[in-house]
Design a protein around this nucleic acid. Structure first.
Lengths: 252, 252
DNA sequence: CGTCCTGTTGAATAAAATCAACTACGGTGG
DNA sequence: CCACCGTAGTTGATTTTATTCAACAGGACG
C-alpha cells in the first residue's frame, strides 16, 4: 500500500523535507476495527487524524435524539481538523470499516505554520476543499428531495473513490448501512430503502451486499441537483503566489 | 467605527507587523449597496473579502431551481475563502444590507503563509470556526424540523451578533426577508411565516419590521437541537505550540 | 399611480415520517 | 455447535409535516 498523500500534495509542490515530515506521521499508525469510535464528541482534542485505509464517518449528536453524519471520510483524508478550535471535540469519529489511521499531534500542526509553509498551505487548502464539499452537501440536504440527495451523495462518493483509485468499472465497496445513509442524508432508514429501490429498479444503480455499482452515470447525474466540485490543483497555489520548488529556500 | 479585527486576533497574539498587514487590507474598502452581488457563482476568483460593515449572504444555486443560503456573514467575517481552491467561485456573495467590504488579493494570502505565520494560523483557525459552524448548521437542517431549525438559527445569529456587540437587550437589526430565511433553512417562505408566527405567539420572540427581539432566551434554547459552538480562543493556539508574542522573532 | 415583493392566511396536496410486521444475517454466549 | 438476540433490509398502511396553490393587504420604489 502506498500512503495516500495525494491530498496535501494536490495543490503545492513539496520539498523533500516536507515529504520527510509527512512520512514521520505514518510511523505510528494504528488499526481500529469496524464500528469502534476513534474519538467521541466532547473528548479532549489532542491532534488530527490522517486516514490511511478504510472509511470513517464524522457525526454530531442532537438533543432531539437524532444523529447527523457530516461526512464519510475516505483514505487520504485528514479528520478532526475543525475541532482544533474547540475546547473539546465537536464531532464523533467512528470507523465504518476496519481502518488504519495515524494521529498527528496538535503541536506538529503548529510547527508546519512556523517552519513548513508549503505544507501549511497544503493543509489550509485541503481544509477549504472540505469546506466546499460540506457546503455542497448542505445544499442538497437543504434544498433537495430524497432522490436528489441520494444521487448527489452517490455521485460525490463515486468521484472521491475514483480519485483514490478505489473503483472498478463503476463498482466499489459500499459498507454503509441504510440507517447510516439516513443519518447522512437527513432521511429515515425506511425512506432510504425506498429511494434505493427506485434507483435500482430504474437501472441507475446495482446493489450487492457490501458493494454498489453505478450502472448509468449520466442518468444519476441528471437526477442530482449539482455535480461534485472540481478543484484547481496547482493553479490554486499559483494564484496565491506559489513558486516552483527549486526556487524556494528550504528550512535548514 | 473600529475595524472588526476580532476574528483573526481571536486565537493568536499578533505582532505589530501583523497589525500593519491587517491595516493595509482596510485601505481600499468599498461600499456595496443592498441586494447587490459582490461575486457570483462561476466568477473568477481574485481573492477573499473582509466584511467591515453590514450583512452578506453566501448562496449556491441548484439545478432544481432552488437556492441554498449557506451562511449569513456578519461584520468581521472573511468571505469567499473556500473558493480559493476552485477555478471559479463556488458561491454567490450578495449584500443583504448596505455594506463596507475590502478585497484581499489572493497573493496577499499566500504571503501570509510565507512571511506572517501567526496571521496564517489565525486565518486557518478562523476558517475552521466557519467549518464548525457549517457542520452545526447542516445538523439542524438535516435532522431538525422547522421549529428546531428556526430556533437554532436565531440563537446562532444572536450569539454572533452579541459577540460583535450588535445587540441591545436581546434586540437586534434583522434585515432578512422570510423568503431568504426559507432559503437559509431549507423551508418554504410560507412555512417560515407560520413558524415565526408560532414563536411570536408563544412569546419567545418579538418581531418588528427590520428588527427582532429574543424575549425568552431559555425558551428558545429549549427548542433548539444544539447550542451555538463555543470556541477555545488562545487555548487553541497554545495547543498548537503557540508562543507569546515577545519570544517570537519577527520578520525583518 | 401602478407594479412588484413581502408578509399573511386558508385549503388542498405531496413528501417523508411513523408504525408495524416479517425475513435474513452476524455475532455471542451457553 | 447451536440457539438466541439484535440489527439490517424490506414492504404495506397510516399519519404528520411541509409544500403547493391561491388570494389579499401593505410597503417600497420607479
Amino acid at each position: 500500500m502506498q500512503p495516500p498523500f495525494h491530498r496535501l500534495a494536490e495543490f503545492v509542490s513539496l520539498t523533500s523535507q516536507d515529504m520527510d515530515v509527512m512520512n514521520g506521521w505514518l510511523a505510528g499508525y494504528r488499526k481500529v476495527s469496524r464500528l469502534r469510535t476513534l474519538r467521541r464528541e466532547g473528548d479532549p482534542v489532542t491532534g488530527v487524524y490522517f486516514l490511511l485505509e478504510g472509511w470513517v464517518c464524522s457525526s454530531l449528536m442532537l438533543r432531539n435524539g437524532r444523529r447527523q453524519i457530516a461526512k464519510v471520510h475516505l483514505p487520504g483524508d485528514m479528520l478532526g481538523i475543525p475541532s482544533l478550535v474547540l475546547p473539546t471535540a465537536g464531532e464523533t469519529l467512528e470507523a465504518v470499516t476496519d481502518i488504519k489511521v495515524s494521529l498527528i499531534p496538535a503541536a506538529a500542526i503548529g510547527e508546519l505554520f512556523e517552519h513548513r509553509p508549503r505544507l501549511a498551505i497544503g493543509l489550509f487548502l485541503n481544509a477549504q476543499m472540505e469546506h466546499v464539499a460540506l457546503t455542497q452537501k448542505l445544499s442538497w440536504v437543504g434544498a433537495g428531495n430524497a432522490m436528489e440527495r441520494m444521487s448527489a451523495f452517490l455521485l460525490d462518493l463515486f468521484a472521491r473513490l475514483d480519485a483514490g483509485r478505489l473503483t472498478e468499472g463503476g463498482r466499489f465497496d459500499f459498507p454503509l448501512t441504510q440507517p447510516q445513509l439516513g443519518e447522512l442524508l437527513g432521511l429515515t432508514a425506511v425512506h432510504v430503502n425506498r429511494t434505493l429501490k427506485r434507483l435500482d429498479q430504474t437501472g441507475f444503480i446495482v446493489r450487492g451486499r457490501g458493494w454498489l455499482r453505478i450502472a448509468d452515470l449520466a442518468g444519476l447525474q441528471s437526477l442530482a441537483p449539482n455535480l461534485p466540485p472540481r478543484f484547481s490543483g496547482p493553479a490554486a497555489w499559483s494564484r496565491l503566489g506559489g513558486q516552483p520548488a527549486a526556487q524556494i529556500l528550504t528550512w535548514p
